[in-house]
Design a protein around this nucleic acid. Sequence first.
DNA 1: CATAAGACCGTGAGCGCTCACGGTCTCCCG
DNA 2: CGGGAGACCGTGAGCGCTCACGGTCTTATG
Lengths: 351, 351
Amino acid sequence: MPDDAPAHPKSRGAARRAQRRGPTMEDVASIAGVSRGTVSRVLNGAHHVSAASQQAVREAMRQTGYVPNESARSLVTKRSGAIAFVLSEPPDRLFEDPVLGGLLRLCTQLLGVHGRSLMLMLAGTPEERDRVLDFARGGHVDGVLLVSMHDGDPLAAALVDTSVPVVVCGRAPVGGPPLPYVGADDRGGARTMTQYLVAQGARRLAMVAGPGDTAGGVERLAGFKDVLGRRANRRAIVCAAAYSIEAGREAMSQLLRTAPDLDAVFVASDLLAVGALQALAAAGRRVPEDVLVGGFDDSTIAAATTPPLTTIRQPLSQVAGELVEILLDRIGGRPVSSRVLPTTLVRRESA
Amino acid sequence: MPDDAPAHPKSRGAARRAQRRGPTMEDVASIAGVSRGTVSRVLNGAHHVSAASQQAVREAMRQTGYVPNESARSLVTKRSGAIAFVLSEPPDRLFEDPVLGGLLRLCTQLLGVHGRSLMLMLAGTPEERDRVLDFARGGHVDGVLLVSMHDGDPLAAALVDTSVPVVVCGRAPVGGPPLPYVGADDRGGARTMTQYLVAQGARRLAMVAGPGDTAGGVERLAGFKDVLGRRANRRAIVCAAAYSIEAGREAMSQLLRTAPDLDAVFVASDLLAVGALQALAAAGRRVPEDVLVGGFDDSTIAAATTPPLTTIRQPLSQVAGELVEILLDRIGGRPVSSRVLPTTLVRRESA
DNA sequence: CATAAGACCGTGAGCGCTCACGGTCTCCCG
DNA sequence: CGGGAGACCGTGAGCGCTCACGGTCTTATG
């Protein structure tokens, strides 16, 4: 410390405290020979601080191992630096779906580079929902990334009047408040797949749709119908009870009964398709020789099935990118708009 | 302002502030006709508070929609209520492995029940690691759940001297500090599977082991060798480069070259096994007729392969339970001990 | 050379809470 | 009936930070 005299009167207890409970701003300030205010300035922004002070402060921070106390900061700024990633789903969803895992990872990573942290919150039960609401109201989080597939989700409505910025992933639940959202183009993707199946020679197409109260459920079905028009056979469409392997197996079995002559099936998600593949195999139908199978999502599992699944890829990293960008914009008070991202067909062997 | 009489001197700004930024404790107190201190008491513990005051306070809280400000609380208590779930892995791990997703969900849920929240943090890059460390040092989290598979992880060592309670999931990395951990009995499970394979008539067993610097990698291999003793053929053991489908495929292909006469293979993880199954199919080997295949984890994917995978189940919910219990104990200053949980064989069709 | 404009920096007043302390009031025992 | 023990409750002093304000010192400008 070439530039510093013995120290200021204020620094008496500072050193002792510094070793007890982590150094405070005051400690850094006294070591750097400046005031709290200056330290604060270099910490955020560093406008109007001389190069010398800045240097001294940084050195003092390094030397003391200073870490700003986020609680104290939040207390006055009313910002927490945290974003809630809320999974408004039955509890086993995260367990099953690799897509969700990927989204979560991507968001954590992206948020991290913006200096923000992610709190994972479940909202399957009323108690959990209340906790989320309390967090939002209590200023514990600056924004919410709501992953909600189901329509009429009570959380979305409750969340808007906490006035905490919210962005929905997937699609804004119908009947809910008009929240900004970002999602893949479910309908367009479904159209692409259906057209592809037709182009591959499918004549009697069937569909395993997702649950009827989810965006993926209705939009992908709509895309299917867009292409088929009145040729769509009502008997050849069943909705799965959930996005799970079992539900897919059951739905496919049912399809095999109601539309036994099907020669292609579009399944609304890869996980569902895994189940469908199993049901098909159990029924002795070969894929793709007897039945073409198309999935949706392009999750990890798609490449692992037998045969590997032809599917529609969701641009997951784009979705994550837009999600955090929009949320951060909303938090910053900038205007935002929802976004629907294009999907692509991934050809493998099932169709 | 229709509802406000001149009121107490102190409550002048209170009402105005209450509608601006959420009610504070002072607001609740003045409405309930008590003091801050009493409100604080009913909030935590509620000892030495008359039933009447307690009633009044609760009513006032309900009426104002009061939510305690966690930052202010943390500032004085030095506790944050948050736990970091740190994934010290290459970034694509979470993407792939359903086991991790399940663990994450379970921990979030359990922690939630205890009134604590979970921050998800990645620690794949040095920057991310520094962030984790800063969080720990800054008192931003009360404890860390470290999911680290690789030995010699620098994070574990750095974390211990932040004096923040840490519990490791999996196993304490060798060469690292002696941290409490909880994990499944990898070695025992591997023994069980190997014995089972032998009992099923396997004579020339091979193994696709996990990466050599992971607990799962060395322990499961050790279990394999425990059973086979000197009958273990060195040529019939290869380590996969990672826990991924591709790595499994490649390892299996290699095995097919170095030990072409194998009639059973124990694969150190389900994900790896998916790849192995693909390689086997590509080579024209039928499972289980020509080759028995055993996996490890019993992740979602295990039931979805063709044929469905016989595997070793990790008691995931028990792992999660012990993990948070031990961490909470450590935070509470109670003594803790590491725990190894038993695994079970799940028979399906691949062996 | 006087003065305005700006750069730089220190200070005080909180943010909303907890916790130790001390005060009051009741009740019971000797 | 005095007084100690508790129960109950209010108060002050911060926790570590930010932000507005105002002061000093430099520099440019008329």
